[in-house]
C-alpha cells in the first residue's frame, strides 16, 4: 500500500540509509505551511490556488495557517506599502524558524508599476526572499510552480551547517 510494502521485501526490517540533512530537508519541504496573508490583487490568485479549480492540496501545500506561529512559508502576495511594512515584518518575526519567504508578483518583488512615495520597492530590502515569482498578478499555476521550485531549493539546503543555511539572512526590524 504505502512505503512499507516496497521496503519490506528488499530491506527486511525496513531500514533506510540516508543522510541526516536529506531527512530533515525532506520533512521540512513536505510540510510547508503557508501563512494566510494577502495584501492586494495577488492575494486573489493565492485564494484561487487553494480552491477547487487549482487545488493546492494535490501537492500537500494547502494548510494555510492564520497564526504566523504555525506557519513556515510567508507568501508576500501583493503591494507592500510603507504603512503596511511594520505589520509584514512583525508577522515574519512571529513565524518560527525555519521559515521561507516567497515574493509573489511584481509589487512584492520590485514595487511593480507603483513607483511612488508610499510603496516599498521590493520586500527583499527588508526580508530574505527565497523565491521571486514574476507576474502582475501571476497565474495560479505559476504559484504552484514557485512552491514546487521552493521545495527543490529546500532539498539543497544544508541545515546542519549553519554557514550554508539560507536562514542566515537577517531581517531588518
Amino acid at each position: 500500500m504505502g512505503l512499507e510494502t516496497c521496503l519490506g521485501d528488499k530491506y527486511g526490517d525496513g531500514v533506510i540509509v540516508t543522510s541526516m540533512e536529506k531527512a530533515i530537508n525532506w520533512a521540512r519541504k513536505s510540510s510547508l505551511w503557508p501563512c494566510t496573508f494577502g495584501l492586494a490583487c495577488c492575494a486573489l490568485e493565492m485564494i484561487d490556488v487553494a480552491l477547487s479549480p487549482y487545488d493546492l492540496s494535490r501537492f500537500g501545500m494547502e494548510v494555510f495557517r492564520p497564526s504566523p506561529r504555525q506557519a513556515d512559508l510567508m507568501i508576500v502576495a501583493g503591494t507592500v506599502t510603507k504603512k503596511m511594512l511594520p505589520a509584514v515584518l512583525r508577522i515574519y518575526a512571529q513565524m518560527t524558524e525555519p521559515k521561507w519567504v516567497l515574493a509573489m508578483g511584481a509589487c512584492a518583488s520590485t514595487g511593480g508599476i507603483f513607483r511612488s512615495y508610499a510603496v516599498v520597492q521590493g520586500i527583499d530590502q527588508y526580508l530574505p526572499v527565497d523565491m521571486y515569482l514574476p507576474g502582475c498578478p501571476p497565474r495560479p499555476e505559476a504559484l504552484i510552480d514557485a512552491i514546487i521550485k521552493l521545495h527543490e531549493k529546500i532539498m539543497r539546503e544544508k541545515p546542519l551547517h549553519s554557514s550554508g543555511s539560507i536562514q542566515s539572512g537577517s531581517c531588518k526590524i
Partner: peptide, 25 residues
Amino acid sequence: GYLHRGIEKIAENRTYHQIIPLTDR
C-alpha cells in the same frame, strides 16, 4: 491606508494611455 499606493500621484506622471493599467489594479 495600508494599501495606499499613490495612484493619483502616479497618474499625474503618466500619459493618458499609460494610466489604464493603473486603474484595473
